[in-house]
């Protein structure tokens, strides 16, 4: 049992992080806090993907060594066990950018909300909107 938990600790870590993010997104009343929750949520998924790319047994970053470049010129294939899986890293580069873009747009929306209601607390905004008769 203990071994099972340890062998997958990265997944447990990302699940915990994700739950923290989701909790903040749902429960917090302040819009910026909700946004921070959203960021934690996105980062947890990025961590999950990146951890999938890991290989034990001496694998290193996926940049070919001078030796392997030399081999490649001689048409000798590199050993995949020596390098980590590059694909999750590529995917997460894209996902990070997407996350940042979403955060940017969300912050712009928050600025609009603040200009309109002069507050970022959800319940206060609800009160203001009720008073204005909508």
């Amino acid at each position: 049992m203990f071994e099972y938990i340890v062998s997958k600790f990265n997944y447990w870590a990302y699940i915990c992080l994700m739950m923290i993010g989701l909790y903040a997104m749902i429960v917090k009343g302040n819009l910026v806090k909700k946004l921070i929750g959203m960021n934690i949520f996105q980062v947890s998924i990025i961590l999950f993907y990146v951890s999938v790319g890991a290989k034990s047994g001496g694998a290193t970053v996926p940049i070919l060594t001078a030796e392997d470049i030399h081999h490649a010129h001689a048409h000798v294939l590199a050993n995949p066990l020596q390098y980590m899986n590059p694909l999750p890293h590529v995917l997460m580069l894209t996902a990070i950018v997407v996350g940042i873009a979403t955060t940017g747009v969300a912050l712009a929306i928050i600025i609009m909300i603040y200009n309109r209601y002069k507050t970022l607390e959800e319940d206060e905004i609800l009160v203001i909107r009720k008073e204005s008769g909508v």
């Binding site: 290989k55 047994g57 995949p80 999750p88």
Partner: peptide, 11 residues
Amino acid sequence: GWSNPNAPAST
């Protein structure tokens, strides 16, 4: 398991 070099993702 984590960082298993024979996992489908790596093969």
